[in-house]
């Protein structure tokens, strides 16, 4: 096993050993089972879960990512003294953490849905939800890592990471709404599709909502969305956008640590 694999393995087990990842998985298991048990309607449960996933997954990933990155600073410095490639060290840490979070999330949701299994179509919706959750984990862990190398001061880094999350989860939508109000006289359907691409949380939300039955209620504007997101190409474009969102912070992070003086 090369050094990258070893570091991934180490980070992965390191995270899983701490209570955090376990609690994270357990939380989703309990929430998902409760919702499914009490709502009785698979799709309705997915809509509720969607809200929770879109709120918590980015938040936990951001907080966890920053904390992990700052806390393992000494260990990172120790590794840097070894004859290892810098890329391997940092990519390994990132992948190890992301994988463990992704595992907790998918196990938590997956087990709950296995217990209250739905039809194939419903399971496809769930798969989409888990997939979006995993991508969001990747995106926000990457952002957290990037922020933690940009700012030496922990408190400052932590604050900015939370701000970034707040921006993506809430403030962006506020600005979005302000934009829609301001330019109400123009045909905005295509512009809104473009604008959702710039926020991974919005993008995931719309992709999942359009798969559920709530899709058609989107009225005329929804018809435009459906024409885009409902098609095979639209889904591919959205996933591609999410992948870009995973890759850009990660690459910036890796580039930054290449030259950083620890």
């Amino acid at each position: 096993m090369n050094s990258l694999g070893k570091i991934i393995k180490y980070s992965f087990y390191d995270t899983l050993r701490s209570w955090w990842a376990l609690l994270y998985g357990l939380f989703f298991l309990i929430i998902a089972s409760t919702l499914l048990y009490f709502s009785g309607d698979f799709n309705k449960a997915i809509v509720s879960l969607l809200n929770i996933v879109l709120l918590l997954v980015p938040l936990i990933s951001t907080v966890f990512g920053t904390m992990y990155s700052y806390n393992s600073r000494e260990f990172t410095e120790l590794l840097l003294a070894q004859p290892l490639k810098r890329n391997h060290i940092f990519l390994g840490q990132y992948l190890g953490l992301t994988l463990s979070l992704v595992l907790s999330l998918s196990l938590g949701l997956g087990i709950a849905f296995l217990l209250f299994a739905g039809t194939a179509a419903e399971s496809a919706n769930l798969f989409m939800l888990i997939l979006c959750g995993c991508l969001l984990t990747g995106i926000f862990t990457g952002l957290a890592f990037l922020i933690s190398v940009l700012f030496e001061d922990r408190i400052k880094g932590f604050g900015i990471a939370i701000l970034v999350w707040l921006f993506a989860a809430v403030i962006y939508d506020g600005l979005f709404l302000a934009f829609l109000v301001a330019f109400n006289d123009y045909p905005l359907e295509k512009a809104t599709i473009g604008l959702t691409m710039f926020n991974p949380i919005d993008l995931s939300r719309i992709m999942i909502l359009l798969r559920l039955d709530t899709a058609a209620l989107l009225g005329y504007t929804g018809a435009v969305f459906n024409k885009f997101f409902g098609t095979w190409q639209g889904t591919m474009v959205s996933f591609f956008a999410l992948l870009v969102w995973v890759l850009v912070p990660l690459l910036l992070f890796l580039k930054k640590v290449q030259r950083k003086d620890f």
Binding site: D173, L177, V181, T196, L209, T214, Y220
Partner: peptide, 20 residues
């Protein structure tokens, strides 16, 4: 109420901002 005026804002359905 908002939607009647700005149909495109349906894109924010179930977003946290709207819930707030």
């Amino acid at each position: 109420y908002l939607l009647e005026d700005i149909p495109a804002s349906i894109v924010l359905l179930r977003s946290m901002f709207v819930d707030l």
